[in-house]
Simulated scan of single mutants.
Amino acid sequence: MTSRNSSTPSPERAQRLPVASKVIPSSYTSWIKKTAWALAIANIFLIISGGVVRLTGSGLGCDTWPKCTSDGSWTTTPEMGIHGLVEFGNRLLTFVLVIITIVAFIAILGIVFPQRVSTGFFVKKLIFGARAHESRYADLFNLTLLLLWGIPVQAVVGGISVWQKLNPWMVTAHYILSAIMIALTAIYLNRIYRYFGGTAQAEGLAAEAPREGSGLMRVLGWLGFALVAALIFMGTVTTGTGPHAGDAETHRHAFDPVLVTRLHGTLVWTYCATVLAFFVLVRKYALAPIFTKSLFWVLLVLGYQAVVGYTQYFNGLPAWLVEFHLIGSGIFSLAAASLIERQLVLSSAASRKRALERIS
């Protein structure tokens, strides 16, 4: 099994390639990996930006959507002050994410469809996605397509939350969509590195059959998925019960803040226990070396989140600490999704076989 990197042009060769060949390469280049990381960073930054909007009380800085003001202005006005600038700036970041996502999407088109395809065929793929029999790398196309379509969906949900004056359930939906987008970028990154970046060896894919202990690995993977989904959801409920609403007049959940915070914390510690159990499993059965790296990053982020989370809880939820917790939540979504994807793919004979077929 040889790496796809063998077809990567040398630096001297790359300098002579036209711009179009760099932007839409016909074989793997580092440009594809860079655009994948740009996708992950941009989606995490959107959470950071959204946190700034909420923590500065600027959630209704633009009081309607898609326009910024109810009197018809598309942009913020001086009368709206700093809150209008903050919220409008956050809206503008959506266009930056659109550009980055489009660049990442077109970067893999030359690999997904190496032969010229008709306009009708491509339009159909934009709506319904690619199938495995149509392209060896249909999964990469579909992941970037989902990220592309996710942006207008996210914008509409954000708009509805403004219409509903930052109803906390709509804010929950808005955040969860961001977490899903980050998880999709984690899966995309895993597969870019697996197919072209040389991690297939560290993942033990040379052997098509899963190793002993893979059954329990799969159980822990699905359990981890359920726990991560639950703890992210409860994190948004906890936020929706707390003081940082995004606007002084908006509705808050009537739940007991101590109870929901403890429930969120319990889910986090339960997930941490499954991660530690998987660490023991990796050592016992000498599972793929890549898991050591994945586990390190997940445990590091969990430790960071625990320190920041408990510090903010015992200090009255200062806004700057809440923002640091939000940053950690975005990175956690990336790290946890990466680990879970590896658990589920490497524990399945069928998934391993499909992955091997995409590695040249």
Score class of each variant (00 low, 15 high):
I187K: 08
L334V: 04
S3N: 13
F291V: 04
L205K: 00
S49W: 05
A306G: 07
S347W: 05
L85T: 11
S333N: 03
H133A: 13
G72R: 02
V228S: 05
F225S: 04
T2H: 14
F255N: 11
L60Y: 10
A20E: 11
T241E: 05
R191S: 08
Y193G: 01
Q164W: 14
G197V: 04
E79A: 13
P210I: 02
F113R: 11
L216K: 15
R342V: 03
A337N: 10
I48W: 00
A200W: 04
L93K: 05
L140N: 00
A179T: 05
V123Y: 11
R191H: 11
P257K: 11
V307E: 13
V307I: 15
L17Y: 10
T56K: 09
T270D: 12
P257V: 09
T69M: 09
N5I: 12
L220V: 01
V86R: 04
H244R: 10
F255R: 13
M234L: 14
K165A: 07
A229N: 10
A36Q: 02
A337S: 15
L317R: 01
A200E: 10
N190E: 12
T75W: 06
R16P: 06
S347I: 01
R136G: 02
L267K: 00
K353L: 07
H133S: 13
I47P: 01
T119P: 01
L216N: 11
L166M: 07
P257T: 10
W320C: 04
Q343Y: 05
L146K: 05
M217T: 06
N167E: 13
P78N: 14
A349G: 05
L231D: 06
L85H: 08
A42G: 04
W297A: 07
L300T: 03
I340V: 14
N315K: 02
V298H: 06
L17P: 04
G150P: 03
I32Q: 09
E79T: 13
G213I: 11
A209Y: 10
A277L: 15
Q312H: 14
H264N: 10
E79M: 07
A350H: 14
T292C: 09
S6Y: 07
L46M: 14
L276M: 08
V86A: 09
L140E: 00
G197C: 06
Y313M: 02
S26H: 12
V98L: 01
L93W: 12
V282R: 08
K34A: 09
G265Q: 14
R211K: 14
I176P: 06
L177H: 03
T172Y: 11
A14Y: 07
D71I: 15
L166T: 04
E203W: 01
T8P: 06
H251I: 12
V23M: 02
I340E: 02
G120W: 12
L55D: 05
L223K: 09
F95K: 12
N43V: 04
R16L: 12
K293H: 08
L299D: 03
I48H: 00
V307Y: 09
F278S: 02
S360A: 08
L85V: 11
R131I: 06
S351E: 13
G50Q: 01
G240E: 06
G57N: 10
R358C: 08
L267P: 00
V301Y: 00
V301Q: 03
L216D: 12
T199N: 06
G235R: 06
I106W: 13
S351H: 02
T101I: 09
